Simulated assay, not measured.
Amino acid sequence: METFTRRRDRFEMFDGFDSPAVNLTFTLDLPDFRPWCKAQGLPPFHVLLRAVLRSTLKVENFRWRVLDGEVIRIDRLAPSFTVVNQHNDLNFAQFDWSDDLREFVARGVAAREEASAMTALNGKYQTMTPRECRDQVFITCIPWLDFTSIQHPVAVLANPDIPSIAWGKFRDGPAGRLHLPFSVQAHHGFVDGFHIHQLAEHIAAELTAMMA
């Protein structure tokens, strides 16, 4: 927490705002990993999900949360993401982490199938303690839209400490690149635009390393 100690004055300033959230939407430039996924028999969404979550842990500022008025640092993530069910209603998929790519994907696919088959909202979230909730990053994908902005919901306006990340429709970029709209919302007391830039760089590096 040494890094946070140096930043505490920024945190205290932004934390006193009615809404201390920073929200950036930008075009994320990535290596086009879709052909590699097709050759490996892996769904691109889940591969990107893993790269995004691994990258959030590599940027120290995305590890900080607020619990009972105190700043804590998380060491793990409980993967989760939004799905739509047979009625096109929102639901939440959640599963246990695995460092193995194929196992991570398999668990994610199983969680997606389970959540999308539910009519009622997934009740697993209601059983989580406030501390367990902090081991999350809220993930949503809107694959139908090339959006240019998004407003993420926050349960308590003054406490957006759990980052929210969204991405949209893939589109071909130049020379084997992939472009997609990407949004990051986080507590500005923890995260600045520079840290969001770092996150984007790590995601691209994760995918490049995976395909090597």
Rank of each mutant, 00 (worst) to 15 (best):
E2S: 15
T3C: 04
F11T: 08
D15T: 04
D15C: 05
D15Y: 12
G16V: 00
S19V: 14
A21F: 06
N23E: 03
T27Q: 08
D29E: 12
P31D: 08
P31R: 05
F33W: 05
P35R: 02
P44W: 10
H46M: 12
L48M: 14
R50C: 01
A51G: 14
V52Q: 02
L53D: 07
S55R: 07
T56M: 09
L57G: 11
E60V: 09
N61G: 12
G69F: 12
G69Y: 08
V71M: 06
R73K: 14
D75W: 05
R76E: 13
L77I: 15
P79Q: 08
F81M: 09
F81K: 03
T82E: 06
V83P: 03
V84F: 09
N85V: 01
Q86G: 12
N88D: 08
N91I: 08
F95W: 15
D96E: 15
D99S: 09
D100W: 01
R102A: 06
V105Y: 06
V105R: 06
G108Q: 10
G108Y: 11
A110V: 02
A110S: 11
E114L: 10
A115M: 12
M118W: 05
N122Y: 10
R131T: 08
V137N: 03
F138H: 10
T148S: 08
S149M: 02
V154H: 04
V154I: 09
D161F: 02
F170P: 10
D172G: 01
G173P: 02
F182I: 00
G189D: 03
V191Q: 02
I196T: 08
H197M: 01
I203E: 07
A205S: 10
A209E: 09
M211Q: 15
